[in-house]
Simulated assay, not measured.
Amino acid sequence: MTEILDRAEDPARMIRMIILEMEETLVEVRASAARSIADGKEMRRAYARLEEMQESWTEKAELALSKDREDLAKQALVERQKAAEMAEGLKQEIEAIDETLKTYEADIAKLQAKLREARARQNAIATRLESAVTRAKARELLNGGRTEDAFSRFDMLEKRADLAEGHADALGMTGPKSLEEEIAGLRASDKVDAELEAMKAALKAKNKS
């Protein structure tokens, strides 16, 4: 899966490479077809020459017979037979080349159709690939150990946060007063009461006068 995702990291580039490969293949098939066409033309010219040779040897054999030279006529017919056998061999090769050319023609038509389709759907295919890669990565993440590790780290952080909050709350708490604090409080209260009584007496004396 990782290897597939790595190869499909850039779907648009991947599509361009596929189209380029198809174009190169089309060029190669056309080049092979061109060579086959050239070979076929050359073989047809050779076949035509062999047919002319057969006609020529036939005429020579007839001429030899007309001159009562049966021996020469027989030799001419032997040469004509050789030319005929060569022509038959060439004919079979020409037929094979014609069949090959039909295959090339079909292959070229298919490649051209696929190229047109790929170019027309290039953007759509790239979008689908990107979506598929994204889904695959998401599923790999959810099904792999990375997600569990992430959630474990989250749990650890939450525990640390709880501990920190508890520590802060503890610092804000006021515990029970010690004995010294309570006695000091009483002394402070007596002092306030004495000052209050003094103020009352002073105010009362002032009003009488």
Score class of each variant (00 low, 15 high):
Met1Asn: 09
Ile4Asp: 09
Ile4Trp: 08
Leu5Ala: 06
Asp10Gly: 03
Ala12Tyr: 02
Ile15Ala: 06
Met17Phe: 01
Leu20Arg: 13
Arg30Ile: 12
Ala34Ile: 10
Ala38Phe: 09
Ala38Val: 10
Glu42Ala: 13
Met43Ile: 03
Ala46Leu: 14
Arg49Asn: 08
Leu50Gly: 01
Trp57Pro: 01
Thr58Cys: 01
Thr58Arg: 11
Ala61Ile: 00
Glu62Gly: 09
Glu62Gln: 14
Asp71Asn: 12
Ala73His: 08
Leu77Val: 03
Val78Ile: 14
Glu79Trp: 04
Gln81Ile: 03
Lys82Gln: 11
Ala84His: 06
Ala84Thr: 14
Glu88Asp: 10
Glu88Phe: 04
Lys91Val: 01
Glu93Thr: 04
Ile94Asp: 00
Glu95Gln: 12
Glu95Thr: 14
Thr100Pro: 00
Asp107Phe: 06
Lys110Glu: 14
Leu111Arg: 11
Lys114Tyr: 11
Glu117Tyr: 11
Ala120Lys: 14
Arg121Pro: 01
Gln122Glu: 15
Gln122Trp: 01
Ile125Glu: 02
Arg128Tyr: 03
Glu130Phe: 00
Ala132Pro: 03
Arg135Val: 06
Glu140Val: 02
Leu142Arg: 14
Asn143Pro: 00
Asn143Leu: 02
Asn143Ala: 05
Phe151Val: 10
Glu158Asp: 15
Arg160Thr: 06
Ala161Ser: 10
Leu163Cys: 02
Glu165Asn: 08
Asp169Ala: 11
Met173His: 13
Glu182Ser: 09
Ala184Trp: 00
Ala184Glu: 05
Gly185Phe: 12
Gly185Met: 05
Arg187Ala: 11
Val192Gly: 13
Ala198Val: 10
Ala198Thr: 13
Ala202Cys: 05
Leu203Thr: 03
Asn207Met: 07
